[in-house]
């Protein structure tokens, strides 16, 4: 901290000072919302990309591995700022909510109205339950280590079951062309994407299917381990940005 104020001499703001401080709160909140809508959404679109864009990319292996791993980055960094400097346990929820606002705007205007895709083909996934757990765990433990290990793991493990109520119905089987497809696959076949041939999908590939046919838990636990490592990394990136070096008097 830059300017230690003794407890005995601390006086809360009142009157005009309090009103200005509150106005500043709202100003920062609005700016932060737009900043996170833009930056987190861009970061997410460039990294998770197709796994979040298309219903026929949301597989058992890569989608639950990649999405939480990338999704925990901004929440960790923003938590580092908001918790460390303000004891505000809302960094993860704020980031994920901002991401969803940006995602929905894009899906409706860019994918549906501009490029004619039905919105149900491009429904986004949600990470809000994981973000709530991350925020509350950090608040209750006040520990980077505990939040990294258990919060990071929970963020990854909750992702697939959170989204199954949204996307489970797209995994019903359909008989098409003498073969079985999911409804999601059929979206990819019927609704033409010039730049997205079927083989481009990075789905159901790899050697994670070790225990019988249960691929999702393995992916989720792999993601949990990686999220536990990703969380402190981005926490420190956030902390690095949250300098109060120039704040001498407040």
């Amino acid at each position: 901290m830059s300017a230690q104020i003794p407890i005995s001499t601390f006086k809360p703001y009142q009157g005009e000072k309090a009103r200005l401080a509150r106005a500043y709160d709202y100003l920062i909140l609005v700016l932060a919302l737009f900043l996170f809508i833009g930056s987190f959404h861009l970061h997410f679109a460039l990294t998770v990309g197709d796994w979040d864009f298309w219903v026929d990319w949301k597989d058992r292996q890569w989608w639950p591995l990649v999405t939480p791993l990338i999704g925990i980055t901004f929440p960790a960094a923003v938590q580092a700022v908001l918790w460390d400097k303000f004891r505000l346990p809302l960094g993860a929820t704020l980031c994920v909510a901002a991401l969803l606002i940006g995602t929905w705007v894009t899906r409706v205007f860019a994918y549906h109205y501009w490029n004619y895709f039905p919105i149900n083909m491009v429904l986004p996934a949600t990470m809000i339950p994981g973000a709530l757990v991350l925020d509350t765990l950090l608040m209750l433990t006040n520990s980077l280590t505990v939040t990294s290990i258990f919060g990071g793991a929970a963020f990854a493990l909750l992702f697939y079951p959170t989204n199954w109520p949204i996307f489970g119905m797209f995994h019903q089987a359909v008989e098409v062309a003498n073969s079985q497809l999911t409804v999601a696959d059929l979206f990819g076949f019927q609704y033409i994407r010039t730049g997205m041939p079927e083989y481009l999908r990075i789905i159901e590939r790899g050697t994670l299917r070790t225990y019988g046919q249960y691929a999702t838990p393995l992916s989720a636990f792999c993601s949990a381990l990686l999220c536990s490592l990703m969380y402190p990394l981005w926490w420190h990136i956030g902390k690095w940005f949250a300098s109060t070096r120039y704040l001498t008097k407040i």
Binding site: I5, I28, K85, I250
Partner: peptide
């Protein structure tokens, strides 16, 4: 109250 108040 959020930022300035909580920071202080």
């Amino acid at each position: 109250p959020l930022f300035i108040s909580r920071y202080r």
